[in-house]
Computed example of a mutant assay.
Amino acid sequence: MQNELVVLDHETRQVAIAAMHEHRSKFSPFRGYDEKIFPDTELVPVRECHAVIARIEADKVPAGDNLRTRETVDLVIGSFPFTKESAERLEDPDKYLAALTFIFAKYPVQFHQRVVEEIITSCEFRPIPAEVNKMFERHLARWTMAQVIAKRHLKEHERRQAEQARKATIEAESAGRAEFIQRMGEKFGSEALKMAQAAQGRTGSRVKPFSAQAEEEADLKRFQQDRQRLDRQAEQLKARAAE
Rank of each mutant, 00 (worst) to 15 (best):
P93L: 06
G32Q: 04
P93F: 04
A239T: 12
E22H: 14
S25N: 11
A141C: 03
R166W: 14
E4D: 12
A199N: 03
E215I: 15
D94M: 04
A58H: 00
R68F: 10
E117M: 05
H153D: 03
H50I: 09
A162N: 09
K187Q: 15
P127G: 02
R24F: 15
A178P: 00
E22P: 00
R159A: 11
K134G: 04
P108I: 03
L230T: 02
R142E: 13
S28C: 10
M195F: 09
I56V: 06
Q147Y: 01
Q110F: 05
T69E: 05
A51W: 07
Q233S: 08
F223S: 04
V76L: 11
A214D: 07
E137P: 03
G32L: 05
E243F: 11
D231S: 11
E91L: 10
L8F: 11
V46F: 12
L230V: 06
K106N: 04
G32P: 02
R24D: 11
V61R: 07
A18L: 12
Q224A: 12
K238T: 09
I53D: 09
M195Q: 10
D94N: 05
P29T: 06
K134L: 14
Q182I: 14
I120G: 01
F136W: 11
D231T: 14
A87T: 02
E118A: 13
L43T: 06
L67W: 06
E48K: 02
V46K: 09
F210K: 08
S174W: 15
E42M: 15
H10A: 14
E4F: 15
K194C: 08
G189V: 04
I128S: 07
A175H: 13
A54F: 07
P209T: 06
P81N: 05
A214L: 09
E124V: 09
V148D: 03
L193D: 06
A98G: 00
A175G: 12
V148S: 03
I149V: 15
R159W: 09
P108K: 05
A198D: 11
R232K: 12
K221P: 04
I181L: 07
K36Y: 01
R232H: 13
E118H: 12
S28G: 03
A192D: 03
E186S: 12
R89C: 01
A212Y: 11
A199G: 05
A192Q: 10
E4M: 15
A18V: 07
E217C: 08
M1F: 12
S25F: 11
V116K: 02
A16H: 02
F82D: 13
T101I: 08
D231I: 13
L220F: 10
A196P: 06
H157C: 02
K187E: 15
P108V: 07
R55F: 09
M195S: 08
N66R: 09
Q200S: 15
V6Y: 08
K221N: 08
I181F: 05
D74C: 01
V207R: 10
A150W: 07
E48H: 01
K84H: 07
Q161D: 10
S79N: 05
M20C: 05
D74R: 07
E42K: 14
T12I: 09
Q236Y: 12
E243C: 00
R68Y: 10
Q2L: 13
P209A: 14
G189E: 04
Q113L: 12
V7A: 11
E158I: 08
R160V: 05
S205P: 00
G204H: 13
T169R: 10
